[in-house]
Amino acid sequence: MLENSLELGNIGRRYFVVNSFDGVLTTLGIVMGLFISRVENPLIPISTGIGALIALGISGFSSAYLVETAERKKDLKDLEKKMLKKMKGTYQDKKFRKLSLKVSVINGISPFLTGLICIAPFALASIEVITMKIAYPLSIGISLGVLSFLGYFLGSISKERKIVSALKMLLVGLITAAVLYLVGGI
């Protein structure tokens, strides 16, 4: 139990997928909203997107740090009970601290990076490489692609059918886009 909880791989992977998912869906929401409002200035999706992603990143980092630190403190206290001694400054204490920090960084960076990929077409539109008419569907397409990749990644972890897992994530993205479109239409 304790050894599993000490592994960065398991927790890091979980946080990466969960928060990347948040990052992509948030960006998708912003892009869909701007698309429905027929915003033609590429700087608006870039600034609103980056603003939301910075907030998501800070929220991801701080929430994961607080949660993980609390969890690790509990684990350390449990271990102290078994060892009948204080564990402050030991190998386990240092490992717990490092793990909390690494997990928090993953949690903070993942939504920011995946979100940036999704709004990248607007950067191209801002330097007039592509038009806004192409940037919107391209950004939505990239978001759905990133979601499918996350699903594929989850499938490869669970060693289930990767395509099915990718399609499930894609479906979540499509439902989100459809709901946003319908709500925007009203």
Partner: peptide, 15 residues
């Protein structure tokens, strides 16, 4: 010596 499972015996002895 009483020790936690982590570090395991290999790591413990190496350190």
């Amino acid at each position: 010596v009483l020790k936690p499972h982590d570090p395991n015996m290999v790591e413990f002895s190496e350190k």
